[in-house]
């Protein structure tokens, strides 16, 4: 029993921390989806930009983490704002293939990755553990402090965002914009500003996710993409447009990966992730937890 438990606990910790990370990125997508029904394919690169700024401020300018982290978060928000202003809004005004705005976000992400790559020589951008390297020991089982920090931060951010979305007037306006653009305009909601705001919030969340993840596993300029894809998988597995669903989806994906690494083979966790996604899309395309914690009204807004 004891060895069984000591086997399982690390798997749960890894699954939860990885899962919350994916969930946090999934939440970043959800914010934009709530307001615009668009998917931002540059999301992972937003996270990467956050890491790059944080790393550059610490390594090149010698600033402490508590100064660099907020500035990196601001940079993430700025990325979101710029993406919306230079490509998404202009494209939404034109009559184009529905995939074009999505592809547009991807082009901005690629430009960001290419630019950071030139600056860093596609080399690593390491950031140290926030709370020191010594693992926290609970009952003799070591736990990575950064992993625990990710879990805590994610739960806090998801809860805060859920509150904003469902309990404030601003949240109502955000949701209304995503639900029906024309009607929202008629109701006097500044639709353009709402879209812009959602991109900024999304950039901020992505940058937080990136900077929290970087001490865990170092980033290069091209590593944003894979984090972005994992976050998107969390979102689809969980449920469209629901922050808690994205978190649950992320945790589910993270746990499945950790269990496969623990009990089957660590060489096939990635493949398993994509297969799980395809199974979910087949049996429940709206996501496994789509209605979780959603008020009865408007939860069918897709």
């Amino acid at each position: 029993m004891d060895s069984y438990l000591s086997d399982l606990v690390p798997i749960i910790i890894v699954g939860l921390s990885l899962g919350s990370l994916f969930g946090l990125v999934g939440l970043a997508y959800t914010v934009i989806i709530n307001a615009t029904q668009l998917v931002n394919f540059g999301q992972g690169d937003f996270a990467m930009v956050g890491v790059a700024v944080c790393w550059a401020l610490i390594a090149k300018l010698g600033l402490p983490l508590w100064v660099a982290f907020p500035l990196a978060v601001v940079a993430g928000g700025a990325m979101g704002f710029i993406t919306n202003a230079i490509i998404v809004t202009p494209l939404l005004k034109k009559d184009v293939h529905p995939f074009y705005p999505i592809l547009g976000t991807m082009s901005v992400g690629t430009i960001a990755a290419g630019a950071v790559g030139i600056f860093t020589g596609f080399y690593w951008m390491p950031i140290e553990h926030f709370l020191g390297n010594e693992p926290l020991k609970v009952g003799g089982i070591p736990m990575d402090t950064q992993g625990l920090l990710i879990i805590g931060t994610t739960v806090a951010i998801v809860t805060a965002y859920w509150y904003l979305l469902h309990k404030t007037r601003l949240g109502l306006a955000l949701r209304a914009t995503g639900f029906n653009r024309e009607v929202s305009l008629l109701a006097g909601i500044q639709v353009g500003k709402m879209a812009s705001l959602s991109f900024v919030i999304s950039g901020i969340i992505a940058a937080i996710a990136g900077v929290l993840c970087a001490p865990f596993s170092a980033f290069t300029a091209t590593d944003g993409m894979i984090l972005g894809i994992n976050g998107f998988i969390a979102l689809i597995v969980g449920g469209w447009g629901n922050p808690y669903a994205a978190l649950l989806g992320g945790v589910l994906v993270g746990m499945i990966r950790a269990l496969i690494v623990g009990y089957i083979s660590s060489a096939h966790a990635e493949l398993a992730t994509f297969l799980v996604l395809m199974v979910v899309l087949t049996i429940k395309p709206q996501g496994l937890f789509a209605g979780f914690m959603m008020p009865k009204t408007m939860n069918s807004a897709r």
């Binding site: 490509i87 494209l91 074009y100 082009s107 901005v108 992400g109 690629t110 990755a113 290419g114 030139i118």
Partner: peptide, 18 residues
């Protein structure tokens, strides 16, 4: 600069000649 170039081309096509 190949990655940057590809991104810029995609961006310009989408933005200015969709």
């Amino acid at each position: 600069y190949i990655m940057l170039t590809q991104g810029i081309i995609l961006f310009c096509v989408l933005r200015f000649m969709p």
